[in-house]
Amino acid sequence: MSDPILSVESVHVSYGRVNAVRDVSIEVPEGGLVALVGANGAGKSSVLGAVCGLVRPKSGAVRLDGKDITRWPTHRRVGAGLVLVPEGRQILGTLTVAENLRLGAHRRRRSAASESEMYELFPVLAERRSLPASALSGGEQQMLAIARAMIARPRVVLLDEPSMGLAPKMVDEVFSVIEKIRSTGVTVVLVEQNARRALRAADTGYVLETGEIAHSGPASELLEHPRVVEAYLGVE
């Protein structure tokens, strides 16, 4: 197997005295889709926080292309092509749709995709480009958050709970967008509570339980794994 594009090496994250993440290691192969699933509070977002630099791990390392980026500030990681689509979308509601997109292109001015490319990919945004982003529906805001990440032409996209709070039809749409991103060769790390959905889309999966990796392996195997089925997938 070739070297992973992104790797998390025995990372520990704690908030005060609370250990949120203990000894988590993850390898993300280039072009792959890795799902990180687990219950609420299992530490999924903390792992992503460490990966994108919003949280400083207590120990362990994060590598991009083998380079140690553990101490890089977030904007530098974005510049290197590691972009987060945060939980709860975090779009800037007082800025217009177009301004949100331009903000996404901010770090990679030269290599950034054009706004019009994003409007082709997300036609719903084109119609609303001069509205304040707060005027969009939840699903549209999620599309904007994804478009805002994609306009930077990332090499790795981290999606934190992209289907949260969305109507089933929008969830389908989000997953089809994820497939589309993937088909362009961009590596995807997907954090989801919707474990079945995420594992079906992924090649590799990691299951987090109370801050530790409880299971990992090919997504298709995890989907059959009795413990995983019992705890996260239930009976369909």
Partner: peptide, 15 residues
Amino acid sequence: RAVAENPTAAKVVGV
């Protein structure tokens, strides 16, 4: 303006 509204979101998009 992005920082004014939400510093974390601004960070995430590379500001």
